[in-house]
Simulated assay, not measured.
Amino acid sequence: MTKKVKSAKHVSEFESIFKCPMCEASMKVFELKSFICSNNHTFDFTKQGYLNLTTHPMKTKYSKDLFKARRKLIAEDTFFEPLIQAFAEMIKRQADIKRESLFILDTECGEGSHLANICDKVGSDFENTVTGVGIDISKEGILAAAKNYTNQIWTVADLANTPFKDKRFDVILNILSPSNYAEFNRLLRADGFVIKVVPRSGYLKEIREALFDKSAKQDYSNIDTIDRFNENLPIVDRLRVQYTRELNNLSMQSLVQMTPLTWIANEKRIKSFLERDSVEITVNLEILIGGKIS
């Protein structure tokens, strides 16, 4: 079975969660080739096994090389393993694991490693189905996700106009990425919740100190972000995740490749940082769980 056919079969089982991004009509899988709404707006499944449900071209700075580096760091080097474990434990604590199924949406999912790992860990404690859906505006990210993880649904989609019907998701993941609280509230089921990850002041401090002079780039405050989250999705649980990992030079290159911090850094400083054989890197994050506003 090709990835295209496998993806079409998988999506056909969950057609009811989708709506057309152009007219909001219901959608159906047609001949395991296309996804068509009742008004005949048509979106084809790609040979790699994903759907592009955007209505216009989307520009992004995220490249194929960035997602390759991200996958190496997350999937191969397990750089974020404590974070993934914390995610799984918080979902198990908040969700009713007796329900027949759990739908998890990862917004700005990138190359899919976080969602795939979380679904695997949470799925082991659910008697029935855990369905993961990942969206991102980057076609390169979704292509990489579909290539490496065939058990989830991957869609190029705009967070400002998600192709899903109201109240379809139990959990929405928002990991180190922008939020759209109006969409989050629309998409969540009545007892659903959003898990947002924001960096704390010590996050990747070794890179900040190496690449920037004393400036705002060396320091970070998430107070405004947390306040805005709490205003839109009242916080019901929170957890700080802090640890350090020693990275060899190859993993350091992956980290430098994937972090937007290097986009505005001096090339000489980046080169100097990468001349080290290894480095101890701090991960310092805050996980917030917010409940839907009634």
Rank of each mutant, 00 (worst) to 15 (best):
T2V: 07
T2C: 10
V5W: 01
V5R: 10
S7L: 11
K9R: 13
K9Q: 15
E13Y: 11
F14G: 00
K19L: 12
P21I: 02
M22H: 11
S26I: 09
K28F: 11
K28M: 09
V29K: 01
I36G: 02
C37K: 02
S38N: 13
N39S: 13
F45V: 08
T46G: 06
K47D: 07
L53D: 07
T54I: 15
T55A: 07
T55Y: 06
T55C: 12
K59Q: 13
T60K: 02
Y62C: 01
D65Q: 13
K68R: 11
A69Y: 00
R70Y: 07
R71C: 02
K72L: 06
K72Q: 10
E76R: 11
D77W: 02
L83E: 00
I84P: 00
Q85F: 07
E89M: 04
M90L: 12
I91W: 02
Q94P: 05
Q94I: 13
Q94E: 14
I97H: 07
E100Y: 10
S101T: 08
S101V: 04
F103P: 01
L105N: 02
D106R: 01
E108I: 04
C109Q: 04
E111W: 09
E111G: 08
G112V: 09
S113I: 08
S113W: 09
S113A: 12
H114Y: 14
L115I: 07
L115D: 01
D120I: 07
K121I: 03
S124Y: 06
S124F: 06
N128H: 13
V130G: 05
G134R: 05
S138P: 02
K139R: 15
G141T: 06
I142Y: 05
I142P: 06
T155L: 11
A157Y: 08
D158M: 14
L159Q: 09
A160M: 14
P163S: 10
F164Q: 03
R168F: 03
I175D: 00
L176R: 00
P178A: 15
P178H: 10
S179A: 15
F184R: 02
N185K: 10
L187W: 08
D191I: 08
V194K: 01
V197G: 00
K205R: 13
E206H: 09
I207L: 14
R208K: 15
E209F: 09
Y220L: 14
N230F: 07
E231K: 11
L233C: 12
I235L: 07
V241A: 00
R245F: 03
E246T: 11
L247P: 03
L247V: 10
L250E: 10
S251Q: 14
S251G: 09
L255G: 04
Q257M: 15
A265L: 05
N266F: 09
E267Q: 04
K271G: 06
S272P: 13
S272Q: 15
E280I: 14
I281C: 08
I281M: 11
N284C: 11
N284R: 10
L288N: 01
G290E: 02
G290Y: 03
G291S: 14
